[in-house]
Amino acid sequence: MVCKKCEKKLSKVICPDKWKDGSRNTAVGTDRKLSENKLLSKPGKNRFKPYENKCKICKSRVHQEHAHYCQGCAYKQGICAMCGKQILDTSMYKQSSK
């Protein structure tokens, strides 16, 4: 679960869009080169540990970039996985602890 503000921070797909008129890869003035391998072009990213963050609640590894909470804990608490802002009121939910 991600709030509206954090939706902009979500990572983009590596392969470019096929539809040229409304796709993200037709923007003028971008630094994207044609036939560029996106995995090799990021110099600071560690390929072997892409997501080094751990969940603040259960200490397990998160599966999203820039996230502080894992998906399970964010859903149980009703919070945004990236910023921790309350999204859902889970006071009337009956959830298991597993």
Rank of each mutant, 00 (worst) to 15 (best):
M1A: 06
M1R: 03
V2P: 01
V2R: 06
C3E: 03
C3V: 06
K4N: 11
K5Y: 08
K5A: 15
C6M: 04
C6V: 01
E7H: 13
E7D: 12
E7P: 02
K8Y: 09
K8Q: 12
K8T: 07
K8A: 14
K8D: 13
L10A: 08
S11Y: 00
S11I: 05
K12H: 03
V13G: 02
I14P: 01
I14S: 04
I14F: 00
C15G: 06
D17G: 08
D17H: 02
W19S: 08
K20V: 07
D21E: 11
D21N: 09
G22P: 02
S23V: 15
S23I: 15
R24E: 08
N25L: 05
N25W: 02
N25C: 09
N25S: 10
T26M: 04
T26K: 03
A27V: 11
V28T: 12
V28N: 05
G29Q: 05
T30F: 00
R32F: 08
R32S: 14
R32M: 13
R32V: 15
K33Q: 13
K33I: 15
K33Y: 04
K33C: 11
K33R: 13
L34P: 00
L34I: 14
S35N: 11
S35V: 12
S35I: 11
E36K: 14
L39N: 09
L40Y: 01
S41C: 13
K42Q: 13
P43M: 03
G44K: 12
G44S: 09
G44I: 05
K45A: 15
K45Q: 15
K45M: 15
F48P: 01
K49Q: 08
K49H: 04
Y51P: 03
Y51L: 15
Y51W: 08
N53W: 01
N53G: 08
K54I: 10
K54N: 05
C55P: 06
C55T: 15
K56D: 02
I57M: 06
C58M: 04
C58W: 00
C58D: 08
K59P: 01
S60Q: 14
R61Q: 12
H63T: 12
H66F: 13
A67L: 02
A67F: 00
Y69V: 12
C70D: 08
C70P: 03
C70H: 02
Q71T: 11
G72P: 02
G72W: 05
A74W: 07
A74C: 15
Y75N: 09
Q77L: 15
Q77T: 08
G78N: 11
G78W: 06
I79F: 07
C80I: 10
C80P: 07
A81E: 09
M82D: 03
M82A: 03
M82L: 12
C83N: 02
C83F: 00
G84T: 12
G84M: 07
K85F: 00
K85P: 01
K85D: 05
K85N: 08
K85G: 04
Q86K: 14
Q86L: 13
I87V: 11
L88E: 00
S91V: 08
S91P: 04
S91A: 13
S91F: 02
M92T: 14
M92G: 06
Y93D: 06
Y93L: 09
Y93C: 10
K94P: 05
K94S: 13
Q95T: 14
S96A: 06
S96R: 05
S96Q: 03
S96G: 14
S96V: 06
S97F: 04
S97P: 01
K98Q: 13
K98R: 11
K98D: 14
